[in-house]
Design a protein around this nucleic acid. Structure first.
Lengths: 240, 240
DNA sequence: GCCATCCTTTGATTTCGATCAAGCGGCGCA
DNA sequence: TGCGCCGCTTGATCGAAATCAAAGGATGGC
């Protein structure tokens, strides 16, 4: 399905400041499509023909080795783009992408995007902010993996979840525990045990419902670090 | 020491295509400086006033937690830039930087860089390629950490080193084993044991001299993966 | 309602890596 | 020459996480 109008693009926060003409150029050769849950959008090694924009649903980015082992590297929520680093430089994907939920995805033609970026410094600055944010997210993950234990990673994840959604009563895990385990770099078995450990620290778990009874105790466990755990605010190529 | 001319900038491969006027603008408020070994250039949380360009020597980027634990996230060689993601978006560093060797470093004023990027789509495209490459490097590291054991990471590191420098006889570790251990996400003790294990796979280690006697056996151990282990070629915002 | 399937939990065991402790060897320096 | 420091190695022990095996528990289809 070809894109009829530029409205969907308006949902992308980073693109909000572009004018109609810029958005029109950007959306040439674009598709808006729905995918059922579990659809593989691309595999590692594929060459990127589109920049994907997730408008509805959820997508996981997956790393693989030849030995069939795989791990969830990132989980994306609307509205987010993937994977600009590959699409902008026309280099093979390092990760696979698979929908975790029925999803609506806007696909911008990569070659057209590259042309727009080469000609339009404003759009280029937006892409720079996007890439910088994604780089920083990966740096955070490396720090998380190398400096913390599995239980600590879980505790930090839960605290962030709690602060974002759980304030009033209970938070809800936004995906399966198997996926969470993979995202945190542990097995499903160990994730289960980690939850059990955290119950001694005032955490309440029933299915995917989470209640943090004692925030301080949980913080003490995971040695929360503002630079790892706080998301960046909206980035831009501006002085501040 | 203020920058007298734009010659040093010519050494940065990504900037090679810029003309004199562009380079002159970019180098306004720039410094060229030498630092002894072990100098801390900045700490996590600092706000980035410069984009650093390493012209000579070596620099390590370090992640820390509040608990004083630290890990080497990346080791940089000439000519490379750090850290564009922070400098371009004016967000606090997530890592510290420390010289591993006496180093010569070019420091481009960040606010001037941001101005140049906003106005110059060509320069912006170069920064996009730079950021994309760094993002991909971090993705590779996450895959490396989550999908391989310490010994496998070492084997892969050595194979890459061997292919780059060791062909004729012996390769030489470019930094101390302690630093290598931290970079690979293991302790110095375990690194030592990992070397011992690999000696059963036809590896020869004497001090920092390495000889790969049986490349195939080593490859079999580390399940080499082209997408993790091969460096990207020169990136750009071009079709290919 | 019932069955098949998938997700999750639990226990037992093994592997891997961190930590602790001690010893070796080189190097700079008084 | 002798001393102390630092980087590296080695062994012993501890803790964390992976693996293997099995059993609940939820879910969706028929």
């Amino acid at each position: 399905m070809k894109l009829k109008d530029i409205e969907p693009l308006r949902q992308v926060k980073l693109l909000a400041d572009l004018d109609d003409a810029q958005l029109e150029r950007l959306s040439r050769g674009a598709y808006l499509q729905r995918f059922p849950k579990g659809t593989v959008l691309f595999d590692p090694g594929d060459s990127p023909d589109f920049l994907h924009v997730l408008l509805e649903g959820a997508v996981e980015l997956i790393g693989r080795t030849s030995g069939a082992r795989e791990t969830t590297i990132q989980i994306l929520w609307p509205v987010d783009c993937f994977i600009p680093a590959a699409a902008l430089t026309s280099t093979p994907y390092l990760m696979a992408a698979r929908t975790l939920e029925p999803s609506q995805i806007l696909m911008l033609e990569a070659s057209n995007l590259r042309r727009c970026v080469r000609e339009d410094a404003g759009l280029a600055s937006i892409m720079i902010a996007l890439l910088a944010g994604q780089f920083r997210e990966m740096v955070r993950q490396v720090k998380d993996l190398k400096l913390r234990t599995g239980t600590q990673r879980l505790a930090c994840f839960l605290l962030r979840l709690w602060d974002e959604t759980g304030e009033g009563g209970a938070a809800r895990l936004p995906f399966s525990k198997g996926t969470l385990a993979s995202r945190l770099g542990m097995t499903a078995e160990n994730l289960s045990r980690a939850f059990r450990n955290l119950e001694q620290a005032g955490l309440e778990v029933r299915g995917s419902r989470i209640v943090v009874r004692d925030r301080d105790k949980l913080e003490a466990i995971c040695c929360l670090d503002a630079l790892i755990d706080k998301q960046d605010a909206a980035l831009s190529v501006q002085d501040r």
